[in-house]
Design a binder for these strands. Structure first.
Lengths: 342, 342
DNA sequence: CTGAAAGCGCTTACAG
DNA sequence: CTGAAAGCGCTTACAG
């Protein structure tokens, strides 16, 4: 028997007394092979602890059985912590891949870097999942390049008209609307919005538009002084809140475009002696794990990451099979906790 | 020019007017090729947007440039949330891999399943990183199998004598000692321990031993009634705390073997009207992000996940290069917050 | 149902 | 410095 290195299909063939081609057929589950032959092959496989070489198999079949996940970190390149929301997505994507029998390659990318040509081109993956927010206007070019190259990909993010490729996202507009409607119902009239609100950041912008819409419905005027830019980090939320307090904009509620922003805002409010929810009602977006542990627990919008992961993987797999795939918007659910109950 | 499919090295060879072998050499950075030739090849590569086929390359070179991360979830197979501590490790491992030019394959495994033969055998990865706690006694067999098979792997966990393979872990004993010493210094004398304390769970056991050691130094008797089993989930911490309260063990402090346990315990204490830290001092272990956001902020032990990821990847890479590698114990740092200050 | 053979796209001794 | 050739370990038409 072979003394060094892993066994190959030839070793199995010898041991089972069949040709190497038959070993391959048996292992791929071809209906052609005889039951008895298949058993002999199986026995040999177990005896030698044989595993099909995926490199050879992928090369021949031109298909890798692997998906790649590109997680963008910009602009939070402080390499400390990844947004827990994306981490949660990562978990569900991993699970969905496993369920479908695919392996998952993951890679963190700077948003600004040249990631558009990557795993798929080098045949390491059959398709790509794009995750992470960033300046959409810069992003869009790269998406178009991917489409032009024929790369199979799906992305998590706002579903907009005329977008290149397939997008899966949650209903940011409805989520934003629900938060603002809830706050209005609790009697708030000066609701600040913490987060970028421009087409550069479509996810936040949609949340903002939902918020603006709810205000409009209730006849509350939209005050630009109440909108403060912030990216999705605790620090940025803290700073934005500081700025807003300093400007004395006068607000009785804060809708943060993400939980991380809300948590930062909560800290700033506390430092200024403003109590949540008595003085200021507060709500976030994402429902990350920490949201229920902060004090007071944070009202937020739940995005179903489990479902999202499944839909992302499923859509990508269908793209790979050349089936037609449409973008999908997942529901967003308001979760009311103490931070907004004044 | 080729109309369909990706360009191959042959296409590049044609375009650059050299042999296919030369293209390969140029791309692998062989010192043999002429500078001028290299430039011509490069130009062709860019023109055709060529990428080396990794499957073919890996097959030929017998090396994949990929590492695999196996993340165990048992016994928390409730598929809801992954322990944030491991998520943080995942982040740092990903980064360390990228830095070394390796791709990372990730896979969640049930601890109990048959994962010992996997990526490495099928040549998808050059080595494996094992992450996640579980019953060590069952685990050990599989580690031995990995060693016997010649699989390259490193694992995160307690560094014990006579362990199969290379382990990287933090100094659980010192961490546990530091927590107990701190609690004792604050005047606590009846310190409960929440977490398994047996050789089945060496990481927790080491923390327990550090705790016991500190008690001994101060002449405080170790009361078995104050130890309550718990696995690393919020729910388990909640239940363990409930049990301990019901038993009326009489305690003035709680050392939870992980932050998740501590957070669950905090909830149980609150429901019973026990105030932290006034009535009961509380400390955890890991310093997950949430620890600083709970109310009151949680005293805990920081494990340097960034460093851990680097050391794991570095050690594995050296193993792959057939260099000798020793297990390493990383420092654990006490982080004092309000939960323990009574 | 099975075998012999070609070929996936590279890398690397071997010659020159 | 470069080319022709062998070969990595599979998969899959093609014959039989």
């Amino acid at each position: 028997m072979r003394s060094k290195g892993k066994a190959t299909s030839i070793d199995i063939a010898h041991l089972a007394g069949v040709s190497q081609a038959t070993v391959s057929r048996a292992l791929r589950g071809s209906p052609l092979v005889n039951e008895e032959t298949r058993r002999r092959v199986q026995a040999a496989v177990e005896q030698l602890n044989y595993k099909v070489d995926k490199n050879a198999s992928s090369l021949r079949r031109m298909y890798s059985g692997t998906l790649a996940l590109l997680l963008f970190e910009d602009p939070t390149a402080d390499e400390s912590h990844i947004n827990p929301f994306f981490l949660s997505m990562l978990g569900s994507i991993t699970r969905a891949c496993a369920q479908q029998g695919y392996d998952l390659l993951i890679s963190f990318q700077q948003f600004s870097r040249d990631w558009h040509a990557d795993f798929a081109d080098s045949k390491k993956a059959d398709g790509i999942i794009l995750l992470g927010y960033g300046d959409y206007l810069a992003y869009r070019d790269k998406l178009e390049k991917l489409v032009a190259q024929g790369t199979r990909f799906v992305r998590w993010g706002a579903v907009l008209p005329d977008q290149p490729g397939v997008s899966i996202g949650c209903d940011n507009f409805s989520g934003g609307h629900a938060v603002a409607a809830h706050l209005l119902e609790r009697g708030c009239r000066r609701i600040a919005f913490l987060g970028d609100a421009s087409s550069h950041y479509p996810e936040f912008f949609e949340r903002y538009r939902g918020y603006a819409d709810a205000l409009g419905e209730t006849g509350v005027a939209l005050d630009p002084a109440l909108q403060q830019n912030a990216e999705s980090t605790e620090r940025s939320g803290y700073e934005a809140m500081q700025a807003l307090i300093t400007q004395q904009a006068g607000f009785d509620a804060v809708f943060a475009a993400s939980d991380l922003i809300a948590i930062g805002a909560m800290r700033a409010l506390g430092e200024h002696g403003l109590r949540v929810p008595q003085d200021v009602a507060l709500a976030g977006f994402d429902d990350i794990a920490t949201a229920s542990f902060v004090n007071p627990p944070l009202t937020t919008v739940l995005q179903d990451t489990r479902r999202a992961g499944e839909v992302l993987v499923d859509s990508l797999l269908r793209l790979i099979r050349d089936e037609s795939v449409a973008s999908v918007t997942l529901p967003a659910t308001l979760v009311v906790r103490r931070s907004s109950l004044r």
